[in-house]
Computed example of a mutant assay.
Amino acid sequence: MTKNNLFEGPWLITSDLDGTLLDHHDYSHAPVDRLLLQLEQRQVPVILNSSKTFAEMLELRRQLHNEHPFIVENGSAIFIPANYFPARPETARKRNNFWLIETGLPREQLRAFLRADATEYGAPYLSFSAATCEEIVAATGLTEQQALAAQNRDYSEPLLWLGTREEKRSFTTRAAAAGLSTLQGGRFLHLLGPTDKGAATLALLDCYRKYRHTDYRLIAAGDSPNDLDMLKLADIAVIIRAPHRPPPQLAASDKRRVIISDAIGPAGWREVVGQLFS
C-alpha cells in the first residue's frame, strides 16, 4: 500500500473494541499487541471507543499498555488522564485521576423510560440492569468479574432483544420520540442519550487540536453499524470484517478513504493499520 497526500499526518486512531481490536468470541488482543507498541513508539495515540464501561476500559487499557484518553458507553462520556493536556478541557470535571466530559444522559433516566415503556408495551428483551450476573455471563461469554464490570454502567442500558423485528422497530421509534438514541451493536441494542461514538470522537479530536496545537487527522476502525457515526468522521475509515455478517456500508469520498479488511477481528486490524504505517 503506497503512501500519498491522503496519508499525511499526524494521526489519531479511534477504535472500537469487540470484534475490532478484540476477538469477538474470546476477547483476545494478541494479534495487535506488537503493532500497538509500534504505534506508541511512533507517537500515534490509539483512542479506545466502545460500548464498554469505565471499569472495563480501565482494565483493558492496563492490558493494552494504553495511557491515552478513552470513550465509554457508545460515546456517552470521554475520560482524559488529568495531566494529559496542559490545561483542563472546557466542560470537563474531575473524576478520580481523569477529566470527565459527559455527552450522554444518566442511566437512571434511561431506566425510567424503560419502566414506563414496559408498563404500556411490555419488555421483549433482557436489560443489563434487570439481569443476573449469570445471565450476562451466558449472553456474552464474559467471566463473572468481567460481567460485573459490564453491568456497572453510568450512561447506557444494553438490551438483549428477545422479541420480533417489528417490536424492535416500534421500540426504537418510541425511544427517539423521547429524545433518546438506540444503537445496534454486535450482540445488544444499546439505549442511551442523544449522543454517539462520532460526536464524542469529534469533541475529543477538538481537544487534541486545541491543546496540542496540532491539526491531527483521523483513522477510525470498527466492525458494526454502531461504529458508522465514528467512521463517517474519519479521513481513513477502516472496516473490520466480521465472521457472520456483511461489513457496514460506508461510501468513500474525496476526503475519505474506506478500507475493508480481509481478515477478521484483531487480525484484520493488524492487517490494515499495519499496512498503513508500514
Score class of each variant (00 low, 15 high):
217 R>T: 02
220 A>K: 09
223 D>I: 04
167 E>S: 03
181 S>N: 07
163 G>A: 10
186 G>N: 12
182 T>I: 06
65 H>S: 08
182 T>Q: 01
57 M>A: 06
187 R>F: 06
275 Q>K: 11
268 G>H: 07
85 F>L: 12
127 S>D: 13
19 G>D: 03
159 L>C: 07
100 L>R: 09
103 T>L: 13
107 R>A: 01
89 P>E: 11
218 L>C: 14
163 G>H: 05
169 R>Y: 10
11 W>L: 03
191 L>N: 04
207 C>T: 00
115 R>K: 11
159 L>R: 00
110 L>T: 00
66 N>M: 09
209 R>W: 08
61 R>Q: 12
195 T>P: 05
41 Q>D: 12
3 K>W: 10
48 L>Y: 06
133 C>F: 04
251 A>S: 13
242 A>N: 07
118 A>Q: 10
91 T>C: 10
234 A>R: 06
6 L>R: 15
98 F>E: 01
239 I>Q: 05
141 G>N: 14
240 I>R: 00
122 G>V: 10
261 S>R: 08
49 N>F: 01
201 T>Y: 00
217 R>Q: 14
240 I>F: 04
263 A>E: 14
191 L>I: 09
134 E>R: 08
213 H>P: 02
83 N>D: 15
195 T>A: 11
213 H>W: 09
271 E>N: 04
62 R>E: 12
54 F>G: 01
232 K>T: 11
214 T>C: 12
257 R>E: 14
65 H>K: 02
254 D>M: 12
276 L>E: 05
47 I>Q: 03
203 A>F: 03
25 H>R: 08
42 R>H: 11
204 L>H: 05
100 L>W: 09
264 I>H: 03
258 V>N: 07
81 P>V: 14
209 R>C: 04
274 G>A: 07
14 T>Y: 03
64 L>W: 00
274 G>E: 00
140 T>Y: 13
54 F>V: 04
84 Y>T: 14
123 A>L: 12
212 R>W: 10
213 H>G: 14
184 Q>C: 07
170 S>I: 08
164 T>S: 11
13 I>V: 07
222 G>S: 08
19 G>M: 01
